Simulated assay, not measured.
Amino acid sequence: MIQVRYSIPPSGAETATTADLRASLLVGDLFVRGEVRGTYTHDDRLLVGGAVPGDDDVALPAWSEVLGTQSHLERRELGVVNVGDAGHVVVDGEKFELEHLDGLFVGRGSDVTFGGEDAAFYFVSAPAHATYPARALAHRDVEPVALGSPDAANERRLFRYAWGEEVQTSVLQFGVTVIARGSVWNTFPPHLHDRRTEVYCYVDLAEDDRVFHFLGRPGATRHLVLRNREAVINPPWSIHSGAGTGSYAFIWAMAGENNRYTDLTPVPTEDL
């Protein structure tokens, strides 16, 4: 199953109801046992999805009615993060074992299947102009960047899986940020990147916990409340920052004009 979302302008976000914003920007119900589900956004033509194999392996769908190709990765590249228990991804016959929060980059033109009875895979694909080899990205092997502080309640570790440096990609960037216990804020102070769309998928929340995700233009922000394993589309004109009621992590993925990680504009707190 796949859904399609269309772009909304900044002014539309400022006058939309909460229900309208959720319908346009929040992506839920991606993880259903035995299925692969996706949502395609016209913002930089990102496609986000969830694959829960269950008893049998499941293939990455072509979704030809949306992508206009015979296979999903005919003109795209893919980033995968396992948000469940141990599982595997098979890329052109090569098997990659993924533990919880392990990542995988898959280049253009590959065939992909997902497996693992208790695994759950979050994935993002983006149009690609070049082909690069698949690369496993074990969470434990990625050196995190320490950000924030306990005093500001925004202490976190940023794990950059593909970010325009060690792993070659065409446009896709993705990774995982883990919020320290006792902290609540992510990506604060916030920033903008006019040349890229970014999607957050919040994971590892307790059943009763939520993340209050802030979006919109500085000075005219709105918020959405997200549960575990829900994602939110952040257009290039929007900030993207959140505060949780308990411990959590989130997967960030973006694509656009470039894959230069530092291509962003900080937003001072006084401008919010």
Rank of each mutant, 00 (worst) to 15 (best):
T18I: 12
L26A: 15
D20G: 04
V48A: 08
V89W: 03
Y40C: 02
D92K: 06
D20C: 03
V80E: 10
G38P: 06
R22C: 10
D20E: 11
G93T: 07
E74D: 12
R33Y: 10
V90N: 08
R33V: 13
L47S: 04
T69N: 07
D20R: 08
D20M: 07
V89T: 05
T18M: 10
P61R: 03
L21S: 00
A23M: 03
V90Y: 05
R37A: 06
V27F: 02
P61H: 04
G12C: 00
V91L: 04
D43Q: 11
I8A: 08
G34F: 01
V91Q: 10
L21W: 02
E35F: 05
V52E: 13
E94M: 13
R22Y: 11
A23S: 09
P53F: 02
P10S: 01
A62E: 04
T17F: 03
V90H: 06
V91F: 04
L30V: 01
L26E: 14
L47C: 09
H88N: 13
E65S: 13
T39D: 13
A13Y: 12
A59D: 15
R37H: 01
S71E: 12
P9I: 07
A13E: 13
S71N: 13
D29E: 09
L30H: 05
D85Y: 11
G34H: 04
D55L: 13
E35D: 09
G68C: 00
G54H: 02
L25K: 03
A19G: 06
T39N: 14
I8T: 11
S11F: 12
A16F: 03
L47M: 11
R75V: 15
I8C: 10
P61T: 08
V90S: 10
L60I: 10
A59I: 14
E65H: 15
L73G: 07
Y40K: 03
P10H: 01
L21F: 00
R75M: 14
V91E: 05
H42A: 15
V52S: 09
E35C: 04
S64T: 07
I8Q: 08
L21G: 02
